[in-house]
Structures are given as C-alpha cells and as structure tokens.
Design a protein around this nucleic acid. Structure first.
Lengths: 339, 339
DNA sequence: CGTCTCAAGTCAAACGATTGATTATTTCGA
DNA sequence: TCGAAATAATCAATCGTTTGACTTGAGACG
C-alpha cells in the first residue's frame, strides 16, 4: 500500500498504478475510465488487477477539477423535521446514491437564505444539479436565471417546465370517491387557500369527485395547513346548521387538529362524523387512528433526482407527475354515516 | 463578467482578477485567502474591489485539490423519516452551514451499506469529517480504523472517546422524579433491553429516581422500541395483580403504543393511569396528547459538528454530553393518581 | 558607499485525473 | 518489400488554487 512521506498509508493514485507497471498514467486513466484508446488485453488486465490490488479509487477532487463536474447533487428544503420533506429527501438521497452521486442537503431557514445558499453552492461549484423543495421566491428565480444550474422543483408546480409533483388532484378525487362510496352525501373539505398549488389541486380533485357523484356541493373550509387550522376548521364545520357527515382534511396537520377538535367537542369519530386525511406515517398515532390518502412522497424525491440526472445528460427539462397513484389507507376514522 | 469560448458567462477566477489588475495570480490568492505575504494597502484594496466587482468566489474544486480538503462534512444515518434522526440531521446541517461547511447526507439501508458508503466517501476524498448516527457495526469500526477520518458517533456511547450524546440518564431520572412529584408510588418503566445504550441509561436514571424517592422498586417492562412493543408492554403491565398508576414509556413509539393500548382496554388516561413518554414533536398528536420528556436532539447534531470541526483543528476527540437538560413538556396524559 | 534587511511582489511547482495530439510499433495488402 | 493503416501507447497541456522559493528595488545602517 502506498505511503506518504511520513509513512502513513495513503490512497493509491493513478501514478502508483502506472509506476507499478511501468506504463504511463494516461494509459491507466484511459483503461479505468473506459474512455479513449485501444489497449492490449494483457495490459488492460494488468492495470485492472493492480488497481484492485492497490484498492484504487479515483480521487474525486482531481477528477472534478479536470472535468468541471462534481458528481454531487444538492437538495434544498425548508424543514427536515417535517415528515413530508423528510420523505422526499430520503427518496432523493437513496436514488442519488444508486446513481453514484453524493447528495448535499441544505435545510434553509427562509427565502433569503435559500438564495444566498444557492449562490454559494453555484459559485463554489459544489454541485452539478439541484432539487428544490422550497418555494420559488422571486429572488431565487432571479438567481437561478443569472447563474443557471440544472434543477427541478419538487412538490410545487409554480415553475413551468421543470417540476416533479404527485397526483394531488387524484388524491382529492379519491378522497371524495371514498367518502361517497361509504355512503356519505354531506361532505366537507378542509384546506389552505388556492395560492398553495398543492391545496388548489386537491380541492379541484375533491370538487370533481363531488360533481361526478351528483352532489350539489360541499362545505369548503379554507384554513391554514396547521394543527390549529384544522382544529378551528372542524369546530366551524360542526357548528353549521347541517354539519357534514364526512370531512376530508387535505393535510396531515389539519387532520390531526380536526380529530383533536372532534374529541374535544365530544363528537364521535367515525360514529357521528368520519375524517379522512393525508398520510405521513404519523396518522396512525391519533385516536382514533386516521384513515388517510397516501402520496408517493419518496418516489417524488427519487423521480426528482432522475430528472436532474436526465437534464445533465442533455435532455430538456419537463414537468413530471409521479405515476404511482394515491392510495387509501384504511384505519379507524372512516365509517358509514349514522342511520 | 468573464465569458467562456461560447460566450456564456463564467464565474470569475483568480486569473481574471490578476489580468484585470496586471498582477500575479499568486498575489491575488494571497490577498484573498489572507495567508502569506505582505501587500501594499492600495494593491490589496484594488484586488478586493475587483474581486467583489467580478463577484469572485473561489472554485472549491480547485482549492480542494490543492489543499487536500473538501470543506464538506458527512452525516450517515439509518432513517431520515424517523423524527429523532431528522432532528439530529437538521441540527447538524444548520451548524455545518454556519461554519462554512457543506453537508453531505447518506441515509443507509443497513450495516453493510454503511461500511461500503463510508469507504466510498473516504476513497474518493469527498469529505473532511463524518458524523455517524448509525450503529457501530464491527465492519464499520474496522473500516474506520483502516482508513481513518475524523469522526464522532452521535447518540451512541459504544465508541469510547468520540461520542456525542444527550443526558439519557437525566431523562430517566426526571421522569421518575416527575411521576413521584405528582403523587405516584407504583411506577412502571417501558424500554428496550440494555443492549441499546440509550435504553440502558434511561432505565438507570429511572431506577436512581425511584431509589432516591424511597420506592422499593418499579415494574420493568422490557419490550422493543416500537409501537407494537409499547402496546404489548402496556397490556402486560395493566394485567398485573397491582398495576402501576403511572408509566414511563422511554421512547416515543412505545408511548404511542401504550396510549393506544390504554384506549383499547378502556383504561382512562390520566384518570386511571398516567403515561409519560419521550418527546419527538409528534407526541401531541395522540389522544390524550402525551406529556413527555424532551431531549435536545438538534443540539446533539450541532454539537457533533462542532466536535468534528474541533478534531479537524487538531484537538483530540472527546466524549461530549450535551449540557442542555432534558425538559418536561406537560400535556394531558399525566395527572395525579386516583384517590 | 557597500551591504544588509525588509517590503512587495513574481515564479513555478505542485494537487491527481483527463484528453487531444503525437509517436512508435505492428499488421497487412498489393 | 514498401508504404499505408491500424494498434498501442506516450506526451503534455489543462482544470484553478495554493504556497514555498526566489527576485527586485528601496531604505537603513555603520
């Protein structure tokens, strides 16, 4: 094993292999990278053998400098502790690994931070491409334009032409269909306002489902995607003259707040009102455990990496909607309406 | 702004600055890095001005190759979706950012993967140091010894001399003290077996608290750290001849399972039995919301980065226990024993 | 006035891999 | 058997920064 001046072991370099065999480093390089020239089989074999004996791995630093690529991708997101983002990141990290990239994660405080971190990553040439799970702030868009880098947005369809999303419309549709199938006719939707594109699409899907079932409409409770938003929404809904018999809370936190409100109000779930929410692996922790619609979040992350990789290979960016359909996860909060 | 052959803007290099001023690149380098030589104030000023005009940022690739450092740290963990790890990673990522490092995240499938990913990162010289939030498998230890890299283990004290942990003993102690303070005398502990060092320390703390309060003992339910483990543990405990009036579930999942079991068995919480668990931001989602002991997980992550950084500065590795004490978060599952 | 020192730079060799251009050797057809 | 073409390899520049060694000129000192 090669050693440095002080006698410590040092990873092997092309030079070590070349020296061991008396050939030129460029020959070794060409054999190992597979590019370039023709080489006698026995020379090739000898090089590969020595390389594996010396446990050779290309020095990414040197290769990166020469090729002007890093073999690294980045992902930027607002909050790792939010299970939605954790799932996306996990999918992305795993896929990046499979493709031989390393993944650099930036958990950014706010929009200003997202721009400055972006600029730093680009200026220092740290990454070849980027997955953005943050909102498309004007500043950031400007930076992306001024200092372009292959990128896609994930879970946001505001940027045209380069976003990876899941079928939010389908999730809303499935929610309505599910509630109707179980026998409900007086439905409610809880979700944030339409400025949030995921909320907009879920609401549209829900509406389509209601229309298709011949319902005249549904109670639309527009509240922020937070636990307290859900709590207030549920309280408001159940105080209506003709309260719904089933509620679709189009976000996990909202669903959790809604159950809490029902429990507090002494309203039986699902006896008196059914609640359906979105999945995030934690929905099972409420009492009663929440039935929910699962979105393929990890796949959204891995598809985002696929897209960035494709762009790096020269393909044009495109909008992608992950094929895997939203899926109903039946737990305890959903049942038929009271007779 | 500098352009490349095809006319696209290209980030400025030292050469661009040097050319603009008619000085040598080495002078520019020395001014910008602050190392080395003496420079006339006006030369220095001119260089800095031009650098900022051209929006110069050192090319990390080139710098890394020359200095044999990457300015990158890594963190390896088993599962990002687990909120405990998400918190640790978040703390680590944020602190790394503050210190000017970029952070590379590897979410590894299993122990074999952890070793091979480690070897890859080291061989390719991708990172300067590493935070390990995975178990210290013998294979991995071997790799760490054969190809050393500054590193610390986090949340695991199996490796002597280089681990960052929180005060698990204190958490157990606080749990016992809290339950006793509220008036309980028949206590129970649910936790995984002592092979898991965090479980061992929490149990020891709990025992110390019971001893200090003059209790003759407590029911020790050894079950795996999972929702079903908690469910079974609670079921078993409440079937005892003299069931406890208060239970410390020393892990969030176990706590969630325990509440679910109590609800299923028709046992009132906290009326008939109090439940205290560990915090992970999700404890509030159960019904009743779980009172819990919060550990400074994000700080554990950021301290880990501090430690790796210190080792890189030449300081010897050391064991660190994060100073911030475990904290009681009072919600609804804890109350006085029934009269 | 000669030499020594210091300030203010420049020079040039790295770091390790890649790659187009070039050279040396072999093969082969006519 | 000669020259062309194919094969097998080497040469040398390059990526952008860092850094120890070296140069130049001016001022200080005895």
């Amino acid at each position: 094993m090669p050693q440095d001046r002080s006698g410590r072991v040092r990873p092997a370099t092309l030079k070590d292999i070349a020296a061991a065999l008396g050939v030129d480093v460029s020959t070794v390089s060409k054999v190992i990278s597979g590019h370039g020239i023709s080489v006698r089989p026995e020379t090739r074999a000898a090089i590969l053998k020595t390389a594996s004996q010396l446990n050779y791995r290309p020095n990414a630093l040197a290769r990166n400098l020469r090729t002007q690529q890093t073999g690294a991708l980045g992902i930027m997101l607002p909050n790792l502790v939010n299970p939605v983002y954790a799932s996306i990141v996990r999918g992305a990290v795993r896929r990046a690994e499979e493709k031989g990239y390393v993944m650099l994660v930036a958990d950014v405080e706010d929009e200003a931070a997202s721009t400055s971190i972006y600029l730093k990553l680009v200026a220092e040439r740290r990454i070849d491409g980027l997955v953005l799970a943050v909102s498309a702030a004007p500043q950031l868009i400007e930076a992306l334009t001024a200092y372009p880098l292959p990128h896609v947005f994930v879970n946001r369809r505001t940027q045209i032409g380069r976003s990876v999303t899941v079928d939010d419309f389908g999730a809303g549709l499935l929610a309505a269909q599910t509630l109707v199938r179980v026998g409900h006719r007086r439905l409610a939707f809880i979700g944030q306002n339409d400025e949030l594109d995921t909320a907009r699409r879920r609401r549209a899907g829900f509406r389509a489902g209601c229309d298709a079932a011949g319902l005249s409409g549904f109670s639309d409770a527009t509240f922020p995607y937070s636990r307290s938003g859900g709590y207030e929404a549920m309280t408001w809904l159940m105080a209506q003259p003709a309260p719904p018999t089933a509620v679709f809370a189009s976000n996990l936190l909202v669903g959790v707040g809604a159950v809490a409100a029902a429990n507090r109000l002494g309203i039986a779930v699902p006896g008196q009102v059914s609640i359906l929410t979105m999945e995030a692996e934690d929905a099972m922790y409420t009492s009663p455990a929440l039935s929910s619609i699962a979105l393929p979040l990890d796949e959204m992350g891995s598809r985002a990496v696929d897209e960035v990789d494709a762009i790096l290979q020269g393909r044009e960016p495109q909008d992608v909607v992950v094929e895997r359909a939203p899926k109903l996860i039946q737990r305890d909060s959903l049942g038929p309406p009271a007779a």
